[in-house]
Amino acid sequence: MRSIYSLLFVVWIFITACNKPEVAPVEMVKGLDLPDHFPSPVYDFSANPYKEEIFLLGRDLFYEPKLSANNTIACGSCHLQSNAFTHHGHNVSHGINDQLGKRNALPLFNLAWQPIFFWDGGVPNLDLTSLNALHSPVEMDERIENVLIKLAEDEKYPTRFEEAFGNAEITSQRFLQALSQFMYSMISSQSKFDKVQLGEASFWDDELKGQALFEQKCSPCHAGVLLTDFSFRNNGLPINHDFERGREEITLSEADRGKFKVPSLRNIAVTGPYMHDGRFRTLRQVLDFYSTGVQSSETLDPLLQAEDTPGIALSEIEKTQLIAFLETLTDYEFIRDKRFSETNDDFTK
């Protein structure tokens, strides 16, 4: 009889032991507030799990001008928080020695949900995005091996790396993972648009009409709660193909000529100027373009060729209503969140 009890006991231990690992996945994103109304993120947090000290190191690195060749340009120089981390007022960004790039700096938020990065989709993993700006001759014009040396010789970074990773070794893995942690933590999910979705607020007249128009005319591409389907499309902007080929520069396929990533429209009211080259200063100019400026070409997106004239027919009143809706996408809590600020004296961990 006693042996039956001991057998049951062993079986019980076995079952409870088996149950344990099920709690693990939740642990992986501990410390991050993933919005309930968002889909599952695509970033693999298990390879770079959130840790407050790593996030804080990432923030310091994001605002560190030593990342550039002559110690003048930080990530934060062209990605300003007040503009949802884009370069407000600059059609294309000026990097080191005031050189100009050919594309508008993309805003930074909800990067853990992005499957592919940059206007042309040239980089498939968030960890590798910083290298692009770091090595670009017109942005930071630096080499990662030099940055690691500069950080190791800096008076504060060896201690910061030790706090974050357990020892003071500064490697490209740690450097890029810290930047990734800061960037994947930039979650924008508290706009009026979100609050309406969650039943915590409601749209007023023009916003409501704008929303209906948006769902009818814009949301096939600017889809879902993230406001993009992450596809690459040619939206009919007149482009000099000797200078700019968009996605074709990555795929070398003529079918991708003039295609760019559909950007999220979150925070769109504060992220101007617009388009890959920042050619439009206002949302009104963007809507004017979609209603009368779309140019036909072999790769123009089929959704913009549904009517007799290419583009999206919009009356002036409809444009006003759409803009009213687009303004509800601004997340003021995000652009003022001290956790992401360069000067964050009143933020304590």
């Binding site: 590798l128 290298l131 690691l148």
Partner: peptide, 14 residues
């Protein structure tokens, strides 16, 4: 490691 491979890496077209 992109820091240890003597530039055998494209960053813009990863």
């Amino acid at each position: 490691d992109p820091a240890q491979n003597e530039g055998m890496y494209w960053t813009w077209n990863s």
